[in-house]
Structures are given as C-alpha cells and as structure tokens.
C-alpha cells in the first residue's frame, strides 16, 4: 500500500518545512556585506586621494551597471519562460526552434556574442537596408546600451530557458492530470497550476543567474558601454594606479553581488515559510 505516493509526500513535506531559526536570527552573511562596505568607507576616507576620486569618477558607471543588469534580468525572465515552454512543446517546429536557440547560444562565449551584436549585427542590418533600399535600415547605428542589453538577454535567456524547463518538469505529472481532469485547457493548467509551483522551485537558480548576470555585465565594457568596469579602465588610462582602481572596482562588484545573494536567500526563505 501507498508505495507510489509515499516518497513524493515525504519529499514535499521536507521542502515545505518552515525555516524558523535562520529567519529569526540575522543571517550571519550580512556581516560580510557590512565588512566590505566598511572597508570601502575606510579606504575612501583614510586615503581620499586616490580612492575618493576614483569613486566619484566611476559613480555613473555603477548606475549604468545596475540599470543594464536589472533591465536585462527582467527581460531574461520573460524570454526564458517562452524558451522553457518551447522546449517542452509537443509541436515539432516550436520545440525545434527553441532547442536550436538554446543549443546555439549556449555554445558561443558571451564576449563573442556581445562583440557580434555590436560590430557585426549593425553591418548586417545596413547591408539589408541598402539591398532593400530602406534608408532607415541602411543608416542603422547601434546604440551601445541597447545592444549590450540585447546581447545579455539573448545569452542569458537561453540559460534561463533550461532553468524554466527543469522547473516545469519537476512538478509531478499528477498536477497536470488533476487540472486537466477538471476541464482546464493545457494553457490554463500551465498558467494556474504548473507555473506558479515551478517558479518556487526555480527561485534559487534564478537568483544565481541574477548574480552571474551582474558579474557578466562587466563584459559590456568592450562594446563602448560606460559601465563600472569601463569607467575603471578610463580612470586607469589617465592615472596609472592599477592597484587602487581595480581593488576598489572589485570591492564595489563584491558589495553588489553579496547584497544580491543575501536578498535571494531572503526571498527563498520567505516563500518557503509562507507555503
């Protein structure tokens, strides 16, 4: 008796277990965030020359990095959902196209992709424009920030597709059967039953993708986007103090990633607790 359902019940009980201790106390890793911030403040105040100058110089780069990361990430969530659903489609064309997308994009380094979008893609568009005699396309100029976001979204969308796919597949078949047996369409079942549960499952890997995206956004510095990394290089070019510049830049990235990691953990625990 009960052989089929016991393991799944036991497993779901484990994942639903309320996490009481760590929530009640402060997550000790927050101290690391505090320490790194403290370190930056000490450097900037004790040795204002050059640290304060560097910080002022790269300030707008921080904003650009945050904007690019957040915008890309929101778009990645959408692209990834469609990619993941496409990978599970029973229609061969949709499955084929989404699989092709995932496989091709995952096989090319992000840096090469970004360079392609910035240097090769506009030329392709211009050639097509000349060919079809459309002035708007023939005179197409790449906007650095838009191109950077497109490059990041296309690449991370492919990774995210696989995360969505795995998340959806992790939901027991019985959930689909129960919703379909109530007369729901495939879409309604996905929208109201499967995706809401899958999203909880994929929250940790999705959070990791955000942090990875934040770090990889430094690659956009090669395509003329004045992000944190590029601003650091620009400061370097005139002041020649690599130790100070790159130490401060590294610490600034570290603050952002550590802070994001803490937020991800918080969200995870919260959704577990509320289940």
């Amino acid at each position: 008796m009960a052989k089929q359902s016991e393991p799944s019940r036991a497993r779901s009980k484990l994942t639903h277990l309320p996490v009481v201790g760590p929530i009640a106390r402060m997550d000790p890793w927050w101290w690391l965030v505090v320490i790194v911030i403290g370190l930056i403040i000490v450097l900037v105040t004790v040795r204002a020359d050059p640290f304060w100058d560097i910080l002022l110089f790269v300030r707008d780069g921080i904003i650009v990095t945050v904007i690019i990361t957040v915008t890309s990430f929101l778009l990645v969530l959408i692209v990834g959902m469609f990619g993941g659903l496409g990978r599970l489609s029973q229609k061969p064309i949709i499955y084929g196209l989404s699989s092709l997308y995932v496989e091709v994009v995952r096989g090319i380094p992000l840096l090469v992709q970004l360079i392609w979008w910035y240097f090769a893609f506009p030329t392709v568009i211009q050639q097509i424009g000349r060919w079809l005699n459309i002035a708007a396309l023939a005179n197409y100029q790449a906007n650095a920030i838009v191109t950077a976001i497109v490059g990041l979204v296309v690449c991370y969308g492919a990774y995210m597709s696989e995360i969505y796919r795995a998340g959806i597949q992790s939901i027991p078949k019985g959930q689909t059967e129960a919703s379909r047996s109530l007369g729901m369409t495939r879409f309604q079942s996905m929208r109201h039953v499967i995706l809401p549960q899958a999203i909880r499952v994929i929250l940790p890997p999705v959070g990791n993708e955000f942090i990875a995206l934040l770090k990889d956004s430094s690659l956009v510095s090669v395509v003329a986007v004045a992000d944190l990394t590029r601003r650091g290089r620009e400061f370097m070019a005139t002041h020649f103090n690599p130790i100070e510049v790159w130490t401060l830049i590294a610490l600034l990235y570290l603050v952002m990633t550590l802070f994001s990691a803490r937020m991800v953990t918080r969200v995870e625990k919260k959704t577990h607790y509320e289940r």
Binding site: R9, Q175, E177, A178, S179, L182, G183, M184, P196
Partner: peptide, 20 residues
C-alpha cells in the same frame, strides 16, 4: 475534450491537490 472532462470528476490515488 475539456467540455467532456467538465462533466467527469476524477479522484486520484495520490490526491494531486494543488500544493500552492
């Protein structure tokens, strides 16, 4: 088939309640 299924309730061995 969904119209037919609306008229047929089904109860499963493993309950299959929507956990969320």
């Amino acid at each position: 088939i969904n119209a037919v299924r609306q008229e047929i309730g089904m109860v499963f061995q493993s309950f299959n309640l929507f956990d969320h």
